[in-house]
Write a protein that binds this DNA or RNA. Sequence first.
DNA 1: CTCACTGAAAGGTGTTACCAATGGTGGGGA
DNA 2: TCCCCACCATTGGTAACACCTTTCAGTGAG
Lengths: 244, 244
Amino acid sequence: MGKERVDTGAGNGASLHHSVLDALGLEITAGTLAPGHGLTLDGIQERFGVSRTVARETMRLLESMGLVVSRRRVGITVQPPGSWHVYEPRVIWWRLAGPGRDTQLRSLTELRIAVEPLAAAAAAREATTQQRERLVELAAEMRDLGESGRLEPFMDLDIEMHSLLLRASGNEMFVALTDVVAAVLRGRTQLGLMPHRPVPEALDLHDEVARAVAAGEHEAAETAMRRLLAEVRDAMAPIRPRRH
Amino acid sequence: MGKERVDTGAGNGASLHHSVLDALGLEITAGTLAPGHGLTLDGIQERFGVSRTVARETMRLLESMGLVVSRRRVGITVQPPGSWHVYEPRVIWWRLAGPGRDTQLRSLTELRIAVEPLAAAAAAREATTQQRERLVELAAEMRDLGESGRLEPFMDLDIEMHSLLLRASGNEMFVALTDVVAAVLRGRTQLGLMPHRPVPEALDLHDEVARAVAAGEHEAAETAMRRLLAEVRDAMAPIRPRRH
DNA sequence: CTCACTGAAAGGTGTTACCAATGGTGGGGA
DNA sequence: TCCCCACCATTGGTAACACCTTTCAGTGAG
């Protein structure tokens, strides 16, 4: 059976267990490795051509994300989605890369709808002067790019603005969602859920949010953000998989 | 300094690295090990009397939570709070156990205020018949216990009701916050932030939420939950550390 | 035929020793 | 003074081993 190193991706800076971790994480979150499926350390060693140490470390990481449990004699068992740590950045990443993509995108969007309005309100209270200035600046730039239909740079600004709002909220739990929101916005564009040209309402609402936050009007900021996200949710509705 | 095994808790089912992980996690989140502080595997081995393997595995775990980074030749460096994975259950647990307790409680409460109203609305749409029935049942029981001033079992029901709502929402991101909400409610009671006898308004609002969800009136459920949480936030205000 | 005991095997847990890679530090030369 | 290079501390990775828990099959008694 020989050694036959698989060498996933020529070890491009990725520290060995990282590649193994990625491979297994993807397979489990994609459902290729169904819940209840059993793994063994020996199996992992053989399959990826790594040492026991590496196999054990990746297994520990998977376990700490709730993707597997490890028990003596019985081995490593794949866990059902309900016990996955869905806020773990890598889990989110894997799910967005796999077949669960639009389900994940939908539940994350619902999370955004919950969090971002309050984050905007908090930002209106807590943001620094520089942050407020940057916000209105961003909204203006977004209008320019949006009206000229340049989707990629528009998305970058969109990400920057929402990230800035979360950061400015001063709540660490909100700040920690920065990457999630960025991933959602990127995924949404990649999935073609954006119109060719951002709708004028969205541009207006971004403006409104920025100005409200800058002016410290937290209620206005909250409702504007709520309307903005309602817009986003409606734009997403077309790909509903369940009842129409 | 010698060997001096620390033996945190006589290995009661905890698999060795778990005790080391807990000890280090607590120290880092508590700030005892300040950001920038350097650790080495040898140091961990010596201090806890464990083998290199165990030291390495715990270090990987800490790294995957963003508490440290590990680089060759440099060693293991404690990271600042900004890079911690604050949705990681163990990180939340450690912070609630340490001096950052009320800061953590406050930011988590703000998260609840964002999420739970939408979760209630979703529950009003998605809950099963059994879940709806259980909700009104719980609200009734809470009223009984609340009016008789039995705080501990009241808290248990409170936790059960909010957990049920999150679960019934059908959104995995909301469901995953079940433990967080439970921890907040428990922490709030332990910290003495609850009045001796739950205020009548709170009891009424729990009732209202339950009935609205049971009836499928998602807007009513959302606003009732919002008012309930406003109540909670106000009860929490007294211990504000910053500007009043 | 069923149930309880027993023993072996499977597979994670923990330890040790060793070599490879890497990047900071300090010394030496221009 | 400044730059380059060699050294070495420290993690990354491999290998081989002892140990302990848990499962499971086989066996014997009732």
